[in-house]
């Protein structure tokens, strides 16, 4: 039973990584850049929800909606101001800019909200469902996290497979020049991708802080890096890859914490990543793009 308990916590943590990893992977797929500021968008989302719910007494659902709205807007603005002017620039310049945006968001959060940790109120309460005479305990947060992740995955898969905008995103990910020749507005499509990724980051932020209630300006960075790892693990650019990578990462992390050492758990996670990349350089579900002639 403890094994199952660990497994479920792993899936739950992994679901959060997966939702964050989606943002990395979609943005990478279309803009071919690593948006290192993505983790900090999570933190902004969590703060917005925190203030909405604890200070202004909004219902949790409204808090989440507001956080999503703010983060979506933030994603669009960051893309427009920081990344769009660098569309033709070398990727190293873009990477450094992304790191800059990350620090900018953290420092702004420090100014606005101070470094004192806030205790995040869980948006779904702290209750739990007990099964098998209490041997298996599923907290509400866990259930909501896993369900949210599944719903998001289904919606995104449907969106990219069936809608005009979603297909345009896939076309842009493959070949922006050809997409332009189809009449697709590539800039608007990239902007849309940032919007979706950042909106999801807000959801991830709320779920993360509901499970681990300490909220600080640096709250987003470590989960951000791990989710980025998950995206690479699963195959960067691939939506199912983000899910698989996120879940695996979560499960490995929880088991490493339980059975190896909680200090070493992150090292174990990265060791697994390195092994996987040695065997499959494109990640578990990554596609090796055929060389262009």
């Amino acid at each position: 039973m403890t094994l199952l308990n660990f497994f479920i916590s792993g899936i739950s943590l992994g679901s959060i990584y997966a939702i964050i990893a989606l943002g990395y992977t979609m943005v990478y797929g279309i803009a071919k850049m690593l948006n290192f500021a993505h983790g900090d968008v999570i933190m902004v989302g969590a703060y917005v929800c925190f203030y909405a719910v604890s200070r202004y007494d909004l219902p949790p659902v409204a808090g989440v909606a507001l956080a999503m709205f703010v983060c979506t807007l933030l994603g669009i603005i960051v893309e427009k101001l920081a990344y769009k002017p660098l569309r033709q620039a070398p990727s190293l310049a873009v990477l450094i800019t992304a790191i800059g945006v990350s620090y900018f968001l953290q420092n702004t959060a420090l100014l606005l909200w101070s470094s004192n940790p806030k205790v995040f109120p869980s948006v779904v309460g702290r209750g739990a469902i007990k099964l098998f005479d209490g041997q298996l305990s599923l907290s509400h947060v866990t259930v909501v996290t896993i369900v949210t992740c599944v719903v998001i995955m289904i919606c995104l898969t449907w969106f990219t497979g069936n809608t005009r905008m979603g297909k345009a995103m896939r076309a842009c990910s493959e070949d922006k020049g050809a997409a332009q020749l189809m009449g697709i507005n590539v800039n608007a499509t990239i902007s849309m991708t940032f919007a979706i990724g950042s909106g999801l980051a807000a959801v991830a932020g709320v779920l993360l802080c509901s499970a681990y209630p300490t909220l600080m300006p640096t709250t987003g960075s470590l989960p951000g890096i791990k989710a980025f790892t998950a995206a690479v693990f699963g195959g960067i650019g691939s939506i199912p890859g983000a899910l698989l990578g996120g879940l695996l990462l979560g499960v490995i992390e929880i088991f490493a914490k339980a059975y190896i050492s909680s200090q070493l758990s992150d090292a174990v996670v990265f060791a697994v990543l390195i092994v996987v990349l040695l065997v499959k350089p494109a990640g578990l579900l990554g596609v090796q793009m055929p060389e262009k002639v």
Binding site: K167, R170, A171, V287
Partner: peptide, 9 residues
């Protein structure tokens, strides 16, 4: 030139 179709679609 080179067709540039979307190979994964």
């Amino acid at each position: 030139e080179g067709r540039r179709i979307f190979l994964q679609m």
